[in-house]
């Protein structure tokens, strides 16, 4: 279980690298979010930025799961059993967002 000194240092370095990436991505996200109501009133821009925000969040999630939670170093089969079920949530997300749009239209239509 106990690692050699070199590996120990390597792992420590990986963690600090992930920390810096997480911090930088968060800073960039917040920086751009601050510009929302100053510059980007059009919904097209907002949409593009929302996509960027979601991407950036997924990057952060990757580093937390892979490095902090150590999933990158586990056997691949285990990572697959944990990650595959998340696919069900994607369909739940798509279905419910489409529903949300539909409920909005119903409220607009019927008042």
């Amino acid at each position: 279980m106990i690692l050699s000194d070199q590996e120990y240092q390597m792992h420590k370095a990986a963690v600090w690298r992930a920390t810096i990436i997480l911090s930088v991505v968060t800073t960039v996200e917040v920086g751009i979010a601050l510009l929302y109501d100053t510059f980007f009133h059009e919904s097209g821009f907002r949409m593009a930025l929302a996509v960027f925000m979601i991407m950036a969040t997924l990057v952060k999630a990757y580093y937390i799961v892979a490095v902090f939670m150590h999933l990158k170093y586990e056997r691949k089969a285990m990572a697959i059993t944990i990650l595959m079920p998340i696919m069900f949530l994607i369909w739940l997300l798509i279905a419910l967002l489409m529903e949300g749009v539909s409920w909005h239209q119903m409220i607009e239509f019927y008042g």
Binding site: A33, L34, Y36, D37, S43, R46, L89, L92, L93, L96, L97, E99, G100, V101, W103, H104, I107
Partner: peptide, 25 residues
Amino acid sequence: FAAFLISYGAIRFTVGQDIWPEPNR
């Protein structure tokens, strides 16, 4: 948590972006 956050998404789409508060404010 996903169920909560996805419900959040659905309700936010129902309300509509126009009257959703700006987080910056």
